[in-house]
């Protein structure tokens, strides 16, 4: 599904381009994000992800095109957009001489919270990002992962409607990554629109409802994971798990529509089907043959391409074009 057909949304990029001198960093980028959606933005280094994000939050001006967030046009009405925006930059940096409490109090007040609200919100966000014991520590004393979590805390402080996260999971250990992903999912469920970029495709796959692939400053494809996979030739591979292996599985290669049979482990088969074959008919014959040769089937599932494979396919397609 191409985003160029979607003109209604909470965040709408409409033909946005950004040029740095002779370098075209973003080229006619158009897509829309619906309110409450978690949007994963992926692409190789230098693809233009951070440029897109900086235009979105008003730190950069686009050379061409329009951007709407909510009912407001950027950058003309960025004051209004900033009231409902939470932003975590790629390399978050604070005035390190401040304590965590001091920094969050300042950001809270600048975001429009009053003194009592700031106190409550700081407590809430530090618990949410699992940093409850650092409130009186100086920022310079925090580890890289803790600073990253503090960055997320400041972005969440004023309950933003739109959360923009540039590589939010970089520098985090597996446990912290899991915690942050849970926070993002929870925010999505509560109606917050989340836009986040990442290099870690499995994390995007875990969290995002919709995914955009960017390369050379152009949107290659946008859609849900299933939509991205469906726009991509399906691999005709079937994974068969056996509860009893008769040792005659090689005989399956003679089946019509089967090109190869791999046995990566005991009681496990990968059956490659001919791309021209009728998949349903071949799987039906496969099941019958397995039973005939004395195997007992525990499960049989078609293998779908992973996001990594889909991503690489689009990136390579972009490089060729």
């Amino acid at each position: 599904m191409s985003a160029s057909n979607e003109r209604n949304g909470f965040v709408v990029f409409d033909g946005v381009s950004k040029r740095y001198g002779s370098l075209l960093a973003l080229n006619d980028v158009s897509f829309a994000i619906q309110e409450g959606e978690i949007f994963g933005y992926i692409g190789p280094n230098g693809a233009g992800k951070t440029t897109t994000i900086k235009i979105m939050v008003g730190l950069l001006k686009s050379t061409q095109g329009k951007l709407h967030i909510g009912d407001h046009q950027m950058p003309e009405e960025k004051g209004e957009v900033h009231k409902m925006l939470g932003y975590l930059p790629q390399n978050v940096a604070f005035q390190e001489w401040r304590t965590v409490n001091h920094a969050l109090t300042t950001f809270g007040k600048l975001s429009g919270l009053n003194k009592n609200e700031v106190e409550d919100h700081i407590k809430k966000v530090l618990e949410l990002v699992a940093l409850p014991d650092v409130r009186n520590k100086k920022i310079v004393e925090l580890s890289g992962g803790m600073t990253q979590k503090l960055g997320l805390a400041q972005a969440l402080l004023h309950d933003p409607r739109l959360l923009v996260l540039d590589e939010p999971l970089s520098g985090l250990d597996p446990e912290s990554r899991y915690e942050v992903k849970q926070v993002i999912k929870k925010l999505g469920k509560s109606g917050t629109t989340v836009f986040f970029s990442s290099h870690i495709l499995s994390d995007v796959q875990d969290v995002a409802i919709k995914i955009g692939i960017l390369n050379f400053g152009r949107i290659m494809q946008i859609g849900t994971l299933d939509e991205l996979k469906s726009a991509f030739p399906i691999r005709h591979v079937v994974n068969v798990r056996l509860s009893h292996d008769s040792g005659r599985c090689r005989e399956l290669e003679s089946l019509r529509g089967v090109t190869d049979v791999e046995q990566p482990a005991n009681n496990s088969l990968l059956v490659h089907l001919d791309s021209e074959a009728d998949v349903d008919e071949t799987i039906h014959e496969l099941i019958k043959s397995l039973l005939n040769i004395g195997c007992r089937i525990r499960s049989i599932t078609p293998v779908f391409p992973t996001l990594d494979e889909v991503y690489l396919q689009y990136i390579r397609r972009g490089e060729h074009s």
Binding site: K83, Y87, V92, L110
Partner: peptide
């Protein structure tokens, strides 16, 4: 450092 200030109203 100013990025966090500039995205506030």
């Amino acid at each position: 450092v100013y990025d966090l200030f500039l995205v506030r109203p």
